[in-house]
Write a protein that binds this DNA or RNA. Structure first.
Length: 413
RNA sequence: CGGGAUGUAGCAUAGUGGUAGUGUUUACGGUUUGGGACCGUAAGGUCCGGGUUCGAUUCCCGGCAUCCCGACCA
């Protein structure tokens, strides 16, 4: 992408209506646009990051048997009434509207009801199970207070997966594999070392559900952590009984702020019973389907990554999610050479943002640091004289001059 | 939803009951060219409604919006 054609502009100063670091940097660098409190547009750079995160999640979900699909944002009142969750007194984040043709609809804050209901058309036998489906969908939640930039919005992208199994054993097997898949995702995003699986208050059907909590100052949760023992307990469920069960004392635990990046839980058979999702077992007997739910906050993850990976000059994206792999910068009268290298990078399928603007070096460097692409490649009279191009990692201070040949060897690795 | 704060140009800010200023940005001209350079010219603004007043961006009332703390996060 030629930066001269990129429509977004960078800002020198942070907008005054954002306190959260993630929103400040993402807005300044042109990744997102704040439409209103808790609702942000994804601009071209932001969309690329989100798509990278989605690709990682998608690959890991596919590996454990997930089938991707997509549901609607409009949902039927009757269905949620059936499960007792239409009332605003029960679910306080509903956005609702009226159809001109008559009747009321809700906007999706979660999707287990419609998906379970849809599955009635496709599940009739134990032979149809297990089924694992997932989607990336916008969730709409009428939060009383949006906060922390893109970390807690009223509209956000979530990956939600649902499992449909016929026995508890089959459910448990998948539940465990989802934990591994989730940790693999966080590993690929570079936050596995700071991410802990915690017990949390579950639904009405399990004593515990599990949350994936990433150490993050901007997070809105607190966990009790013992790094050495690898024990993490959600603040909301810490009781003497839990401590005993985990073989720790409170003195051994440190209270730290975290962001919930994932959440998995078990519905048992109850959800299926409520919506009428049954199958015939091998004996021809009618049974309700076991269900589980597995979420990852995609846009929240983008916020967490910015919170964790930045310095005073801007964002420092992990390689796997950066909007581009290389930021090519032409300085001075080196356009021909830079154009040539840009073409070569494209031919080698290396995602490149090419700063071909007629701007001063200082501005280009400042923008490059702000945008945070992992590898910066500069072509200038200085680098040409020295026989090549200058390469610098965003995360590092020192740059080096290498030949073009070596550049491609390094980048193709 | 309770408490606190704030609304002035694309962005950041100053100030005032009497023609609204600065930086940045944008456009044009010139000097520059390895860390947001400099000079000149120009464009661009008081959240909305009501009240007080000869006159309101300023004072008062109401609304809306945004941020922060708390509550909430099934």
């Amino acid at each position: 992408m030629r930066q001269s054609r990129l429509f977004t502009k960078t800002l020198k100063e942070s907008p005054s209506d954002e306190q959260a670091l993630n929103a400040q940097l993402l807005i300044r660098a042109g990744y997102i646009h704040k439409e209103m409190a808790g609702a942000y547009m994804l601009l071209p750079l932001g969309l690329r990051v989100v798509e990278k995160i989605k690709t990682i999640v998608r690959e890991e979900m596919d590996k454990i048997g997930g089938q991707e699909f997509i549901t609607t944002s409009m949902q039927k009142k009757e269905l949620w009434e059936k499960t007792g969750r239409w009332s605003d007194d029960i679910v306080d984040v509903w956005f609702k509207s009226k159809l001109k043709a008559g009747g009321e609809i809700g906007f999706a804050w979660s999707h287990e009801e419609p998906i379970a209901n849809m599955m009635k058309n496709h599940i009739s036998s134990y032979k149809d199970l297990p089924i694992f489906v997932y989607q990336f969908q916008n969730k709409l939640r009428n939060e009383l207070r949006a906060k922390s930039g893109i970390m807690r919005g009223r509209e956000f992208i979530m990956k939600d997966m649902y499992s449909f199994t016929d026995t508890k054993e089959q459910h448990d097997t998948f539940y465990e594999s989802s934990k591994e898949a989730y940790m693999k995702v966080f590993e690929r995003l570079g936050i596995a070392n700071d991410t802990y699986i915690t017990y949390a208050a579950g639904g009405a059907f399990t004593e515990f559900s599990h949350e994936f909590q990433t150490l993050c100052n901007a997070g809105e949760d607190m966990i009790y952590l013992n790094k050495e023992k690898g024990i993490a307990i959600n603040e909301e469920i810490l009781t003497d009984d839990v401590l005993k069960e985990m073989y720790v004392t409170k003195d051994e635990l440190e209270l730290v702020p975290t962001a919930e990046v994932g959440n998995i839980f078990n519905f048992g058979r109850s959800k299926a019973e409520e919506v009428g999702l049954f199958y015939n077992n091998a004996d021809g007997k009618k049974e309700a389907v076991w269900m589980g739910s597995y979420g990852i906050g995609i846009t929240r993850l983008m916020g967490v990554l910015v919170e964790k990976f930045s310095d005073k000059d801007g964002i420092i994206w992990p390689k796997n999610v950066a909007p581009y792999s290389v930021h090519l910068i032409a300085i001075g009268d080196t356009t021909d050479k830079a154009n040539e290298l840009y073409k070569k990078l494209q031919n080698n399928n290396i995602d490149t943002l090419y700063d071909d603007r007629d701007a001063r070096p200082g501005q280009k460097f400042a923008d490059s640091d702000l945008i945070g692409i992992p590898t910066r490649v500069v072509i200038s009279s200085k680098s040409i004289e020295a026989g090549g191009v200058e390469i610098k990692e965003r995360a590092k201070k020192e740059a080096q001059i290498i030949t073009e040949e070596k550049l491609f060897t390094m980048l193709n690795k």
